[in-house]
Write a protein that binds this DNA or RNA. Structure first.
Lengths: 112, 112
DNA sequence: TTCAACAGTTCCATTTATCCGAACTATGGA
DNA sequence: TCCATAGTTCGGATAAATGGAACTGTTGAA
């Protein structure tokens, strides 16, 4: 299962991004990674919004985010370090990810 | 089958918007409606990107867009007039739809 | 009024995708 | 070597997309 394929920036599709972020768990994971200062492991999201996520589901969610081109995952020892590809994507789709991240924050703030 | 329910602006969810627009046919339909000066009928999209869309599928796509809150559909005689709810949504999720519409245009321009 | 044409919707069967427990792989430490 | 930890893969159950056929609702013509 090795090298963990990531799409090239030119192969990233808008539909893939929107599909990946149309899941409440995935958009929560992604906004967290995008806003974090350092890389995040998968297991850091064993719970999302106080709801436990099974490992196999978590792995699937990370795969979807990775294949959509939203995150980059690199194995570091026993764990995986995930970082966002926001800067790259912003070159191709300017303003898209900030708008989604902002919308997610606005929605989360309202849901208190 | 009457009054054709539309969600209130406060019930519109980010995930619903992203899911609705994660389909290539639906995002094409939506950007067209959003950019049109007058209301568009469903049958105006019997073909999308030179690919014919079956009526039942088209009807389903419009239902998804409607229930996500992206469009408003009103019967006018024998046909349906569809308009975008961009202005309303921009009040709730500022910049979101313009960024998506812009990204879609950029991607379409590249695919020539 | 009856009938035909047209725009959309609903029904339903087939295909496809999602979810998650269980088994598996890979790395690091005792 | 053996065990613990982090993720992945497999496989079966459940849910959603697809599209042809039949249906509803509205208009206009005979």
């Amino acid at each position: 299962m090795r090298p963990l394929a990531h799409p090239g920036i030119e192969d990233i599709q808008l539909e893939g991004i929107l599909h990946a972020l149309s899941d409440p768990v995935r958009v929560a994971i992604f906004t967290n990674i995008a806003g974090a200062e350092c890389a995040q492991t998968c297991s850091a999201f064993a719970e999302v919004n106080d709801k436990p996520i099974p490992k196999s589901s978590l792995s699937h969610h990370f795969k979807v985010l990775r294949e959509a081109g939203l995150i980059r995952s690199e194995r570091q020892g026993v764990e995986m370090r995930n970082t966002s590809r926001c800067v790259e994507i912003d070159g191709r789709f300017p303003g898209l990810l900030p708008a989604i991240i902002n919308a997610h924050a606005a929605q989360a703030a309202r849901a208190v």
